[in-house]
Structures are given as structure tokens and as C-alpha cells.
């Protein structure tokens, strides 16, 4: 198995096979993440496509990165927020036209929170997760589903390494209690 850093360098040199390797390796995790954030599979699919399309178009300008997955997850996160903003603009325009008055939509951040708390309700543990704040939930998701390191999660969410660790401690503490009961 070729090292991810080498694949990344090959992509920067314009090798389309490298793009395919990265795509196939990270597709599942990135799509799950995008769907989780947007709560919509169509948007999720589009986000992943856009991210890799941009990756290819800008391959000459891509930086050297310490972690390729951190770079990709972060790109997916930003693209999802952009996409949701666009959708919101479209619907805001529609609301404006149809009613003559503008109904103030939720902010994107609030919306993400609302979407995220809707997830994971089925089982006891899922209930407990839903009680965590959205950032804690996202950290759990990135760590346990996507197996990213604390350093990578800190890069993706653009928060301090220590914050990730603290949040994780608090979250596990809360979840542990739930599972015991």
C-alpha cells in the first residue's frame, strides 16, 4: 500500500490516478461526514464531487500538508457549509418573493446544530450522544467513525488540540454513564 503522502505528491504533480486513489480511499468517510452535516444525501454527494473537482483543478497550487485526511475532511466541511448557505439563499429569495416579507431563516450554524441533534436517536447511547453539544458530537463522529487522530480533528474543526482532548474526555464521561444505566 502506497503511503498517502506519496499519493498526495503525485496528485500535486498532476497524476489523475492519484486523484482516483484518494477518491476511493476516502469516499466513504467523506460522504458520511457530508451527509451527517447536511442531513441530505444529494447534497452530500454533490459536496464530495465538488471537493474532488476543485482538488483536480487546483492541483498545481495545492500545499504540502501534514495530514491528507485532515485536509480533505476540512474541505468537505467548508464545502458543505457553502452549499447549505447557497440553498438557504435560494429559499430565502423564494420566501421573499412569495410572501412579500422576508421570514428570517435560521443561521447556518444554528441549522447545523438543529440537524445534528436530530441524529442518533434510536438507541440509548444515541440518545446520550444527542445530548452532547454539536461540536462534541462532531468530534465523536470524526474519531469513532472516521478514525482520525486528535491532531487531525483539531485541524479540521480549526480548534486547539487541547480543546479536542477536553471535549472528548467530557463526552466519554457522559456516554459512559448512559451505557451503565
Amino acid at each position: 500500500m502506497e503511503a498517502t503522502a506519496e499519493i498526495w505528491d503525485a496528485l500535486r504533480a498532476g497524476n489523475v490516478n492519484a486523484l482516483e486513489k484518494l477518491f476511493r480511499k476516502y469516499f466513504d468517510g467523506l460522504l458520511s461526514y457530508a451527509i451527517r452535516l447536511s442531513q441530505n444525501e444529494i447534497i452530500g454527494q454533490e459536496v464530495v464531487q465538488e471537493v474532488f473537482l476543485k482538488l483536480w483543478e487546483t492541483h498545481k497550487r495545492l500545499p504540502k500538508v501534514s495530514s491528507v485526511p485532515a485536509f480533505l475532511y476540512r474541505a468537505v466541511r467548508n464545502q458543505t457549509i457553502d452549499e447549505l448557505r447557497n440553498q438557504q439563499k435560494k429559499s430565502a429569495r423564494f420566501v421573499e418573493i412569495s410572501n412579500g416579507t422576508l421570514v428570517h431563516p435560521f443561521s447556518i450554524e444554528e441549522d447545523l446544530i438543529a440537524r445534528e441533534t436530530e441524529v442518533f436517536r434510536r438507541q440509548q447511547l444515541q440518545k446520550a450522544i444527542s445530548l452532547l453539544n454539536p461540536l462534541q458530537q462532531e468530534i465523536i463522529f470524526l474519531r469513532f467513525y472516521n478514525q482520525l487522530s486528535y491532531q487531525e480533528i483539531a485541524e479540521i474543526l480549526d480548534i486547539k488540540y487541547q480543546t479536542v482532548r477536553n471535549y472528548m474526555s467530557q463526552s466519554i464521561g457522559k456516554l459512559k454513564k448512559k451505557i451503565k444505566k
Partner: peptide, 9 residues
């Protein structure tokens, strides 16, 4: 438990 519920795409 945390690993469960991961739907694969």
C-alpha cells in the same frame, strides 16, 4: 456501540 450505526456508502 459507538462504531455501530455507521452506514457505509
Amino acid at each position: 456501540e459507538l462504531k455501530l450505526e455507521q452506514s457505509s456508502h
